[in-house]
Nucleic acid binder design. Structure first.
Length: 918
RNA sequence: GCGGAUAUGGUGUAAUUGGUAGCCACGACAGACUUAGGAUCUGUUGCCGAGAGGCGUGGGGGUUCGAGUCCCUUUAUCCGCACCA
C-alpha cells in the first residue's frame, strides 16, 4: 500500500472537526501557553505559499507544547476591515461585507487543507459588530481618560475636571497637545464647549487640528507608519501634508513606558531597535529666546545647549503658528511666496531634495540669552513643525544642516568647540573643549552640556526636557469600511455615546466613494445621526484599531459583558509566543502595546505587555522563470544557447517548469500566442532562466499552497516550508527540492507497511544502535523546536531514518511518531492508529530522551584554552569511542607546534592532529 | 548620513558555539530493477590534480596549538530610520 496522503489528510481533518480535537478552555490544573499568529487580511488573491510559513511554525510549536502537557490557546481570525475591499466596492458597487465574506471563505478553505490546530470556535472578525463593539468601547475609554505623567498612569477625565476646578492647571503634569495655563476661576468661567476644548488637550483619544498625511488619490488621511518615502504604503500614491481636524490617539503619552518595556521582552534585537528608533527619545533642553519687539518669547528644543554661544540665527518651520506674527511688513511678500511654494512641494519632494537649501528671512530678530547678540529669525522647511517646538536655535559651526543654511545665506559661523575647521564643514561631534563660550570656555563638551542644563534652569530661560520622535497616531480615516466612531456632534463639540449604545453599527450605503463635496462616504448614509438628530462622526477608524486588542478577545470571544473576563484574562494573561512579519514593527506592534498598556492602567488586563516572545518569520519571495524568444519569431531558445541569438526575456508560469526544465507541451497550451511555439533545445531539454523577485501574479511566479497540497499533501508542504531554511530568514520559494521531504514521508510509511499493504510492525527489542538513534533524535528535535530551528529538526528526522534503515520495531516507531506529529500531523495520526491507539495522537505525551543511550558514546575531550586545560563534553555519535581511544597517540612532531614543551597527549583523528594536551 | 543584519559547493543550507568545514536535501553523473519513468533502490559528487597531494567559508590583516566562528579593516547585498535640532 502506497502512502495515500490525500485520503489520510481528508480523514483526519474530518476527525479533528468531528471530535473538536482543538477546542480549548480555561483549565486551572494545567499550565497555559498562548501561541498566536498575526491574523490575515483576507485579500481577494487568496493565500500564496509564503503566507502559511509563520502559521506552520506556530502550529508546530503549539502542537509540541500541547504534547508537553500545556493547555495551549491557538486561535485564528481575520483582520477584515481594510482598503482593498473598499476600493473594489467603489469600482464594482459590491458591498465590502460581501467580498470580505467570500474571501474569508476562501482563506478558511485553504487554511483547513494545511491541517492547523486552531480552535475555530474562537474565531474573531474585526468587521463583526459583536467584535468592533469592543474596539469602540476601548476608544470611548481613551476618550474618557487622560495621562498623568506624575503617576505614569491613565486616569479618568472626571479627576482631571476636579483638578481644573480646584486649582486650574497648577500642579498638573499631564500628557498634552500644548502647554496650557489656566486658573480655577478661568476654568469655572468657561461654558461647556470651551471646557471641552480644554479637555481635548488632555484626552487620550482627542480631536485636533494637525498636520496630517493626506492622500488625495485614496481620499483619506494616513498614519505615519502607513506612509513610506512620501507615498502611501497601500497603492503607492503621493501623500501631501495638510492641516485638518482629525481624531488622534495620544500614543506619545506612553513613549517612555513603551521604551522601557522593550527591555523585558523576548523580541529580536533588530525589532527592538526599530521600535527604539521609532520612539526616538532624545534628551535636551527647552529654551526660550526673547524676540525683539514681541512680548512672547520663542521656544526651541535643543540637545546641544553647550553650543548656545555659537547660535547666530534661528529657524522656524514654515507651518509655525507664529510665522505670520514674526513676519515684518517688508518681508511679508517674500515669506508668503515661500510658504506657498513649500505647501506645493509634496512630502516626497521635500524628502528627495533634502540637500537643496531653501528658506526666507522673516524680518524679526531674537536675542541670544547668553551672548546677548541680536540674531535673525528665518523660516525654512528643513525645520519640521511636528518635532520639538517647530523652531530651532541654529549653530552653524556644529550642525551640518545649519552650516549649509548659513553658507547659503551668508550668515555668521562662530566655532565654540575645538576640533574642526568651520570653513570646510561643521564639526558635529560631541567631544572637544569649549571656546568662545563665556562661562563655558575651557570645559569639556559633556561637562558644558551638564552645566548649561543647570544654567538654563537657574536663569529661568527654560528647562530640561525629553523629546520623542513618536507622534500621536491619527485615528480617523475618510473611508467607509472601518469601525464607526461612537461619537456625535452638537455645536461642533464631540460627545461620546454611552457604553450601552454600542455597537454603533456601520450603516448600509450604495455608493462607497467620497461625496461630491469631498465628505467621507458615511455622509451618504441615511439617518446617520442620533434620535435627536445630532450627526455622527463621518470618519471611520483606521486598520490598526481592530487589530490592537484582538489577542485579548480570543481569550473570551463570546463574552457580551466585557472585552475579556478578568478571571479568564488572569489565566491566559498574555501571548507567550507571537509569530508574524516584521513589517508591523512600527504599526500594529506599537499600537497594540499602547492599547494594552492603557487597558492595564484601567485594570482590565493583568499584563503590561501583550506579546512576551515574538518571532518574525522571513518573507517568502518568488522565484521567477524565464524563456527566451528569438526576436521577431516564435522560436524559444534554451538558456545555455541564448547568447547565440538576439532574444527577449519572457516570464513563464513557474507551475509549468520543473527543476528549471520547461514542460514545452504545457507551454504551448499556456497562452494562445505560444500554441505553435518552436524550441531550440539543449540536450533535448528546454532550460529556463530564473531570478528572485517578489511573488506576484504579473511575474507568473505565484505558487499556491493548494497546488502543493494536491500534489504532495499537507504534511509534505508543512515539512518542506520548514526545511527551506531558518524561519526568520527571507528566502525565495522554490518547489524544486520538495521531493526530498516527500520521499522522507514515503519512507516512513514503508517502515509500517510494505508494498502490498502488509503491516511490518514487530515487537522485537531494539538494538543499542537503534536506541541511540532514537534518543539522539528526540534530544535534537525537542531542542530545535524550543529554539525555532525547524529546518534542522526536519534534517534530524531524515538522518534518523537513514540510520534506522528498515527498522520496523514498535519500540522505536511509536515515540518517533509522536516526535514527528507536530510537523506532519496527518500521517502521524494515521500511523498512531496503526500502532493500535484509539485516541488522537494530539493527546499523547511527548517522549523524553534518556541520557543513558547518549552517554554511551559520548566522550570528554581535552581542550587547552590560553594554556589552561579544560574538558569539553561531546556527543559524537558517528564515532565509535573505541576508535577514538585508539587514535590518541603521541607524535614527536607535535613538539614543534608547542615550541619545545612536552605534550602529554596528542589527539589525532583520521591522521590529523585535532588537539595537543600539554 | 545613522543604525541593524547577512556573505559557506551548481542550489537551499549545516557545523557540538573556538576543535575533522560542507551534515540533511535538491540538482548532476553512473548503475540496478523496469515495456516505461517525473516510481523505487545503490554509488559518486567543494575546487584543482591521472595520482600523491594542494587549495578552500566575500577580500586583506591579527589573536590562537587550532578560526566559518573572536578582534581590526575592507567590499558587496538586504533591511530599518532619515533634515528629529
Amino acid at each position: 500500500m502506497e502512502y495515500n496522503f490525500k485520503a489520510i489528510e481528508e480523514r483526519w481533518q474530518q476527525y479533528w472537526r468531528d471530535q473538536k480535537t482543538y477546542r480549548v478552555a480555561v483549565d486551572n490544573t494545567r499550565p497555559k501557553f498562548y501561541v498566536l499568529d498575526m491574523f490575515p487580511y483576507p485579500s481577494g488573491a487568496g493565500l500564496h505559499v509564503g503566507h502559511p510559513l509563520g502559521y506552520i511554525a506556530s502550529d508546530i510549536y503549539s502542537r509540541y507544547k500541547r504534547l508537553k502537557g500545556f493547555n495551549v490557546l491557538h486561535p485564528m481570525g481575520y483582520d477584515a476591515f481594510g482598503l482593498p475591499a473598499e476600493q473594489y466596492a467603489i469600482q464594482t458597487g459590491q458591498h465590502p461585507a460581501v467580498t470580505t465574506e467570500k474571501n474569508i471563505a476562501r482563506y478558511r478553505e485553504q487554511l483547513d487543507k494545511i491541517g492547523f490546530s486552531f480552535d475555530w470556535e474562537r474565531e474573531v472578525r474585526t468587521s463583526d459588530p459583536s467584535y468592533y463593539k469592543w474596539t469602540q468601547w476601548a476608544f470611548l475609554q481613551m476618550f474618557d481618560h487622560w495621562y498623568d505623567q506624575q503617576q505614569q498612569c491613565a486616569r479618568p477625565i472626571e479627576e482631571l475636571k476636579a483638578h481644573l476646578a480646584a486649582q486650574g492647571t497648577a500642579g498638573l503634569q499631564a500628557a498634552e497637545t500644548q502647554e496650557l495655563h489656566l486658573t480655577a476661576e478661568q476654568w469655572a468661567a468657561m461654558n461647556e464647549q470651551e471646557q471641552e476644548r480644554v479637555l481635548q488637550n488632555y484626552r487620550l483619544a482627542f480631536r485636533a487640528d494637525t498636520m496630517v498625511n493626506w492622500c488625495p488619490k485614496l481620499g483619506t488621511v494616513l498614519a505615519n507608519d502607513e506612509v513610506r518615502d512620501g507615498l502611501s504604503v497601500r497603492g503607492g500614491h503621493p501623500v501631501e501634508q495638510r492641516r485638518m481636524k482629525q481624531w488622534l490617539l495620544r500614543v506619545s503619552a506612553y513613549a517612555q513606558r513603551m521604551l522601557d518595556g522593550l527591555e523585558r521582552l523576548e523580541w529580536s534585537d533588530s525589532l527592538k531597535e526599530i521600535q527604539r528608533n521609532w520612539i526616538g527619545r532624545s534628551e535636551g533642553a527647552q529654551v526660550f529666546f526673547e524676540v525683539v519687539g514681541a512680548t512672547e518669547k520663542l521656544e526651541i528644543f535643543t540637545t546641544r545647549p553647550d553650543t548656545i554661544y555659537g547660535v547666530t540665527f534661528m529657524v522656524i518651520a514654515p507651518e509655525h503658528e507664529r510665522l505670520e506674527e514674526l513676519t515684518t511688513e517688508a518681508q511679508r511678500a517674500e515669506v508668503e511666496a515661500y510658504v506657498a511654494a513649500t505647501k506645493k512641494r509634496s512630502e516626497r519632494e521635500r524628502m528627495t531634495e533634502t540637500k537643496r537649501v531653501s528658506g526666507v528671512f522673516t524680518g524679526s530678530y531674537a536675542i541670544n540669552p547668553f551672548s546677548g547678540r541680536q540674531i535673525p529669525i528665518y523660516a525654512s522647511d528643513y525645520v519640521l513643525s511636528g518635532y520639538g517646538t517647530g523652531a530651532i536655535m541654529a549653530v552653524p559651526a556644529h550642525d551640518s544642516r545649519d552650516w549649509a543654511f548659513a553658507r547659503h545665506f551668508g550668515l555668521e559661523i562662530i566655532p565654540v568647540v575645538e576640533g574642526g575647521d568651520v570653513e570646510q564643514a561643521s564639526y558635529d561631534a560631541k567631544e572637544g573643549r569649549m571656546i568662545n563660550s563665556g562661562i563655558l570656555t575651557g570645559l569639556d563638551v559633556k561637562d558644558a552640556i551638564r552645566l548649561m542644563f543647570k544654567e538654563v534652569e537657574a536663569r529661568k530661560l527654560g528647562k530640561r526636557l525629553v523629546n520623542y520622535r513618536l507622534r500621536d497616531a491619527i485615528f480617523s480615516r475618510q473611508r467607509y469600511w472601518g469601525e464607526p466612531f461612537p461619537i456625535y456632534y452638537k455645536n461642533d463639540t464631540a460627545y461620546p455615546l454611552s457604553a450601552d449604545q454600542l455597537p454603533l453599527e456601520l450603516p448600509p450605503i450604495a455608493n462607497f466613494g467620497p461625496t461630491e463635496q469631498g465628505e467621507p462616504p458615511l455622509a451618504r448614509a441615511e439617518k446617520w445621526c442620533t434620535e435627536a438628530g445630532e450627526p455622527f462622526e463621518l470618519s471611520t477608524m483606521p486598520g490598526f484599531a481592530g487589530s490592537s486588542a484582538y489577542y485579548l478577545r480570543y481569550m473570551d470571544p463570546h463574552n457580551e459583558e466585557a472585552l475579556v473576563d478578568r478571571d479568564v484574562n488572569s489565566y491566559w494573561r498574555q501571548v507567550d509566543l507571537y509569530v508574524g512579519g516584521i513589517e508591523h514593527a512600527t504599526g500594529h506592534l506599537m499600537y497594540s502595546r499602547f492599547w494594552n498598556m492603557f487597558l492595564f492602567d484601567l485594570g482590565y488586563v493583568c499584563e503590561q505587555e501583550p506579546f512576551r516572545k515574538l518571532v518574525n518569520q522571513g518573507m517568502i519571495q518568488g522565484r521567477s522563470n524565464f524563456v527566451y524568444r528569438v526576436v521577431g519569431t516564435n522560436k524559444f531558445v534554451s538558456l545555455g544557447l541564448k547568447d547565440q541569438y538576439e532574444t527577449q526575456e519572457i516570464h513563464v508560469d513557474v507551475n509549468i517548469v520543473k527543476n528549471d526544465i520547461l514542460d514545452t507541451e504545457a507551454f504551448k497550451r499556456w497562452m494562445p500566442d505560444f500554441a505553435n511555439a518552436e524550441f531550440i533545445l539543449e540536450d533535448g531539454k528546454y532550460i529556463c532562466g530564473w531570478a528572485i523577485e517578489k511573488m506576484s501574479k504579473s511575474m507568473f511566479n505565484v505558487v499556491n499552497p493548494d497546488y502543493i497540497v494536491e500534489n504532495y499533501g499537507a504534511d509534505t508542504l508543512r515539512m518542506y516550508e520548514m526545511f527551506l531554511g531558518p524561519l526568520e530568514q527571507s528566502k525565495p520559494w522554490d518547489t524544486n527540492g520538495i521531493d526530498g521531504v516527500h520521499k522522507f514521508l514515503k519512507r516512513l510509511w514503508r517502515l509500517f507497511y510494505d508494498r502490498d499493504g502488509k503491516l511490518l510492525l514487530t515487537d522485537e527489542a531494539p538494538t543499542e544502535q537503534e536506541l541511540r538513534t532514537l534518543h539522539k533524535t528526540i534530544k535534537k528535535v525537542s531542542e530545535d523546536i524550543e529554539n525555532f530551528s525547524f529546518n534542522t529538526s526536519v534534517a534530524a528526522f531524515m538522518i534518523c531514518l537513514n540510520e534506522l534503515g528498515d527498522c520496523s520495531k514498535r519500540a522505536i516507531l511509536e515515540p518517533l511518531t509522536i516526535l514527528l506529529a507536530p510537523f506532519a500531523p496527518h500521517i502521524c495520526e494515521e500511523l498512531w492508529a496503526t500502532l493500535g491507539h484509539e485516541e488522537s495522537i494530539c493527546n499523547a505525551a511527548y517522549p523524553t530522551f534518556d541520557e543513558k543511550h547518549l552517554t554511551l558514546s559520548s566522550f570528554e575531550y581535552p581542550v587547552s584554552i590560553n594554556g589552561k586545560l579544560r574538558f569539553k563534553h561531546a556527543y559524537d555519535l558517528s564515532m565509535d569511542p573505541a576508535a577514538i581511544q585508539a587514535d590518541v597517540v603521541t607524535l614527536p612532531e607535535a613538539q614543534k607546534w608547542i615550541e619545545g614543551k612536552t605534550p602529554k597527549k596528542v589527539i589525532v583523528v583520521k591522521g590529523k592532529i585535532i588537539n595537543i594536551v600539554i
